[in-house]
């Protein structure tokens, strides 16, 4: 049975610390674009932690919500790409083939989650920062769309290793950079086709919701909603 990679994010546990954001930069060769470009809206964060205030001081609350590519089953980004740069791969991931992208940026418009980012310029890594680049991840050219891949390079490596050693992939052994870094383990990654995997069990949780579910994109990330505390004897 093919894999169907999915993720569950426990909003009870997410503290908004942004460790996932930096980890993603480190893993995926995401460039920093400079202050000037950041002020022009060109910062790239494949994963971002959305923060929403509710109420006013002192009755104020905050909601954190990490948003990354939802790897939708019916991904709106894919059909609109004229060159098949965005398409669905056999593991159910929204693959983005950088070499085939001509930069129409249509996919980013179609994506309701705004998780696609664009290389407005060729990225720069002043020497010797380039020595840090992950050799498993290609560096993107100007004019190319990019987005979260669920660390497809790690998936590929794990699958290859498992095949070479004639063993099955163990649930939890394979993690994308964000899940690996997350100090509170709010991010759980795994195979949704395996009913016993942690992520599959969390996806069935009554707390589980999907982001903008009503749009029908069938995202593969389950958000476990934040539960307000209440007096235990209130029940």
């Amino acid at each position: 049975m093919p894999f169907r990679w999915g993720m569950a994010i426990d909003l009870n546990a997410c503290t908004g610390c942004e460790a996932c954001v930096t980890a993603c930069h480190a893993e995926n060769n995401i460039p920093t674009v400079s202050a000037e470009q950041a002020s022009r809206g060109r910062a790239m964060h494949w994963i971002r932690v959305e923060r929403y205030y509710e109420g006013n001081f002192p009755d104020v609350r905050v909601k954190f919500r990490p948003v990354l590519c939802q790897q939708c089953d019916n991904a709106p980004c894919e059909a609109v790409c004229p060159t098949y740069a965005a398409h669905h791969n056999e593991d159910g991931l929204n693959a983005q083939v950088y070499n085939r992208c001509i930069g129409t940026r249509y996919c980013a418009n179609a994506c309701p989650y705004n998780v696609r980012f664009f290389n407005f310029f060729n990225a720069e890594w002043p020497k010797p920062l380039h020595l840090q680049l992950n050799p498993d991840v290609s560096v993107r050219e100007v004019g190319v769309m990019e987005k979260c891949t669920f660390c497809v390079q790690r998936i590929k490596a794990a699958k290859t290793a498992a095949r070479a050693e004639h063993r099955a992939l163990v649930d939890g052994a394979l993690q994308p950079a964000c899940a690996q870094a997350c100090p509170t383990s709010a991010i759980v990654f795994g195979d949704l086709n395996d009913p016993d995997s942690r992520v599959a069990r969390l996806a069935r949780s009554p707390r589980g919701t999907r982001l903008l579910e009503d749009l029908g994109a069938e995202p593969k990330i389950t958000y476990l909603q934040k539960q307000p505390w209440h007096e235990p004897d209130a029940y």
Partner: peptide, 15 residues
């Protein structure tokens, strides 16, 4: 630079 460009959690400010 990574830390300069990572958004502050509460304000989302960078740089």
């Amino acid at each position: 630079p990574w830390l300069q460009e990572t958004p502050d959690p509460m304000t989302s400010a960078m740089w």
